[in-house]
């Protein structure tokens, strides 16, 4: 498998706080890569660096071999590198179907296409994906009135609607009812296998990430602490110490 994202020596500090120091990581095409670490270890900062939310201080980030560390958020998104948010971001005043239809891949659209209405096929696809995440019955409700967990599912469905090449998920299971988590793991795996979307996931729930990822990176205090397969990470004493506060 080839590398689709290659970050090399990425550093980012906010004033005096070093959020990321010399981080290098790779995401393999077609796989599921995990990113773990205690709170405040710089995971979301790393995500934000990749998708272009803030300029990085040092290092390089490549997507499909192209340098993206100097590009703007919408430009990177249009390359097919998409992210979901830790605090969900959905269009609260619209219903679920409208949320889905807005998430149509605009990068594949010309200006004239934008002046067309959505076709039956688009609506069918939206409803199919809503069914996929289990929100079909609520599709005409205002998205803002959904529970936090349902909003996360909606955001995930919107990301799938956008047909990304790589999807960066920031804590997809946070705030989701434990009984629903198994269903979500299953859907994430299916998104990976059926839709062929490469996943890069930040997750706190160890059971979830150990179940899904084929390669895991662990951050602590803004630095790369360990990397390896789930089994290697689970047995790594440094990772256990970091989570229990030895650092």
């Amino acid at each position: 498998m080839s590398n689709i994202i290659e970050a090399h020596g990425v550093s980012k500090s906010y004033g005096g706080v070093k959020a990321n120091t010399d981080i290098s990581l790779t995401v393999k095409k077609g796989g599921i890569t995990g990113l773990i670490g205690p709170n405040g270890s710089g995971k979301t900062t790393m995500f934000n660096s990749i998708v272009g939310y803030h300029p990085i201080d040092e290092g390089s980030i490549k997507f499909e071999g192209q340098e993206i560390s100097k590009m703007l958020v919408p430009e990177i998104a249009r390359l097919g590198l998409l992210r979901t948010f830790q605090q969900t971001r959905i269009y609260s005043q619209m219903n679920c179907v409208e949320n889905m239809l807005i998430s149509m891949p605009h990068r594949k659209m010309s200006l004239m296409d934008a002046f067309r209405r959505n076709t039956k096929a688009d609506t069918d696809k939206a409803e199919h994906l809503l069914e996929f995440v289990g929100l079909y019955e609520k599709r005409y409700l205002q998205a803002g009135s959904l529970s936090f967990g349902q909003q996360k599912l909606l955001e995930f469905a919107m990301a799938l609607m956008n047909e990304p090449t790589v999807l960066l998920l920031d804590e997809p299971t946070a705030g989701i009812n434990p009984t629903l988590i198994n269903g979500l793991i299953d859907r994430l795996k299916r998104a990976n296998t059926e839709f062929g979307i490469t996943l890069f996931i930040i997750e706190h729930n160890m059971r979830v990430i150990m179940n899904m990822a084929d390669h895991i990176y662990c951050l602590a205090h803004g630095q790369m602490l360990a990397e390896g397969t789930p089994a290697e990470i689970q047995d790594d004493q440094r990772v256990i110490d970091a989570y229990l506060g030895a650092h």
Binding site: V73, P74, A77, L82, R89, Y91, E98, S103, H106, N118
Partner: peptide, 18 residues
């Protein structure tokens, strides 16, 4: 729909490649 998306959450709209 795209301008509605900008109204509701412009940052999200940007992140979705609009």
């Amino acid at each position: 729909a795209a301008i509605n998306a900008i109204r509701d959450d412009e940052e999200k709209a940007e992140a979705m490649g609009i």
